[in-house]
Design a protein around this nucleic acid. Structure first.
Ligand code: SF4
Ligand code: SF4
Lengths: 145, 145
DNA sequence: TCTAAATCAGATTATTTTATCTGGTTAAAG
DNA sequence: CTTTAACCAGATAAAATAATCTGATTTAGA
């Protein structure tokens, strides 16, 4: 089985959604994120470091340090997180793995697939963290059920 | 970057499309498929063996042996190939990797994502090999360009 | 019958992805 | 000033995926 996003990207999206579900500007430690989301702590730490480099979140070192969103949740799109971690290759490479893709030589599925892929891209571009806050809170509340 | 289908599945789909682009009932060797599609021969051989076990293609051993579709191309859907290789997990697991998915506790993206996923599933279910024959021929003709 | 060309089965290797470890630096609080 | 709780950076290990290898069996045809 394969998947749309890498584990890194899934965890990154979860973590950023988690941050957005908190108070705006609130600081959360990697440890809390790892515990609440059941993600290996060392792994999520690395991912949070990446997202910090990408300018999506800020980090604060030292005691009572942690991570917070670098912008208002309304200004962080899901596609930004995906681009920072997995990149956008998934939206330009062939579903069937054929080489030499071009408008003249599309793969057999392109017509059908292209439309879906564009929808997915648009969806990730339209959805911002703030729009998902309520649903995230609801999901988080039931994670350890 | 990640991808929808595993390499195995991509190659499997390519190979089956290639078979369907040939004469109905025609036998093609793993060697020819590997050369034409630029896939490692040993790898595609293994995949073809899998598809044979799954009943999607037939194999003929010995000199002038090879592989052929087990059914008429109109009766082989893309989803059948995907199910045989990657399985259908991708259509039921969470895009965001959240656990405990249920109608009561969907992940924040489910509403938007579910629709897309269903579209993808339907597309793969509706598309049969024969419908893609012309496009496959066109793509194959330009692979080594 | 013998050879060549093919599939088949299982083991092995290589590469990528996922996860962990180790030691260091930063900064709040007593 | 010292302790403690956090991030940081780079190396390492484990697991999954992709690819290759080895030897056997099958079968058409010279
Ligand atoms: S045309 Fe085919 S090969 Fe090119 S991107 Fe679209 S799906 Fe992929
Ligand atoms: S609800 Fe969310 S968690 Fe469940 S399947 Fe849909 S996308 Fe995944």
């Amino acid at each position: 089985m394969t998947v749309i996003f890498s584990k890194k990207c899934e965890y990154g999206l979860q973590a950023v959604l988690y941050l957005a579900a908190k108070e705006v500007g609130g600081i959360v430690s990697a440890d809390e994120i790892a515990k609440k989301l059941n993600i290996p702590k060392e792994f999520v730490s690395k991912i949070l470091q990446n997202l910090t480099e990408s300018g999506i979140i800020n980090s604060k070192k030292g005691k009572s340090g942690g991570f917070s969103l670098a912008k208002h949740p309304a200004n962080i799109r899901l596609i930004d997180v995906v681009a920072a971690i997995d990149g956008l290759g998934i939206f330009s490479t062939c579903v069937l793995g054929f080489p030499n893709c071009s408008p003249d030589h599309p793969c057999p599925l392109h017509e059908k697939w292209g439309a879906l892929r564009t929808s997915a891209y648009n969806m990730l571009t339209e959805q911002t963290l703030d729009q998902l806050k309520e649903k995230t809170l609801h999901k988080i509340a039931h994670l350890e059920a």
